[in-house]
Simulated scan of single mutants.
Amino acid sequence: MELNNIKPAEGAKHAKRRVGRGIGSGLGKTAGRGHKGQKSRSGGGPAVGFEGGQMPMHRRLPKRGFKSHLLQFNAEVTLTALDALGLPEVDLLSLKQAGLVGQLAKVVKVINTGAIAKAVKLNGIGATAGAKAAIEAAGGSVA
């Protein structure tokens, strides 16, 4: 077998339907759209979600919840991730370079998940009360 001999399986490919190309094609004149009416026009047809005048589903259901656009600037780091990082001093830049937080992150907080054995000094990074206690117990500090 050579690259120039490769062909799709028999019947896998078929010619695209060409409409509006004369009587002989069988799809001339109205091009399979029938006669007149909203659906025969270009751009015709009801809007997406239109239910014939009945109140559409997306308007019948109640609105719920809220998603803050500021959350993309917040990030969390676990104690396990800090321990695996193995740096004596950790700041926002070092976390971004290690890939533990996203590049957009501005506010980072250490959460008390897992355990930490190495002493780590945090600069400009927050920590929950439990995480702060665990870091200080390991000989580190939260600035």
Rank of each mutant, 00 (worst) to 15 (best):
A75F: 01
A84Y: 05
K36S: 10
S25K: 07
S68A: 09
R64C: 05
G22W: 03
L79D: 01
V107C: 04
K63M: 09
K67H: 06
G53I: 05
G20K: 05
M55E: 12
A84R: 15
L100H: 04
L71R: 10
V19N: 02
H35M: 10
Q103K: 06
R41M: 09
Q54L: 10
L92F: 06
R18C: 02
H14Q: 06
D91E: 12
G22C: 02
E10Y: 08
F66P: 00
G49L: 07
L104R: 11
L71F: 03
K67S: 14
T30I: 13
A81Q: 15
A47C: 05
S42G: 09
I6R: 05
L71K: 08
R17K: 13
V107H: 10
K16H: 07
P88E: 10
H69C: 07
S42I: 15
A12E: 04
S68T: 11
G65S: 02
P88L: 07
K106L: 08
I6V: 15
N74F: 10
L95N: 01
K36C: 03
P56Y: 04
L87H: 11
K36L: 09
F66R: 14
N4G: 14
G28I: 11
P62C: 01
A105M: 01
G43W: 12
S68F: 03
Q72A: 04
G22T: 05
D91V: 11
E89G: 03
V48E: 12
M55Q: 08
G49K: 04
V101G: 00
A81Y: 02
V108E: 00
H58D: 10
L92K: 08
G11V: 02
I111P: 02
H69L: 15
I6H: 04
K16T: 08
G24S: 09
H35D: 12
I6C: 05
G22P: 04
A31W: 10
L87Y: 14
A12Y: 01
A75Q: 02
A75D: 10
L92R: 12
G52F: 08
V108S: 00
K29F: 14
K106E: 14
P56W: 07
P56I: 11
G65V: 02
L70T: 11
V19S: 03
H69R: 15
G37S: 13
Q54C: 07
L79G: 01
G28K: 06
Q38K: 13
H69V: 05
A31M: 12
N4V: 04
E51K: 13
K67R: 13
V108R: 00
K106W: 01
Q97V: 06
P46H: 14
L82N: 01
S68H: 03
L95P: 01
S40V: 06
V101T: 00
S25V: 04
V101P: 00
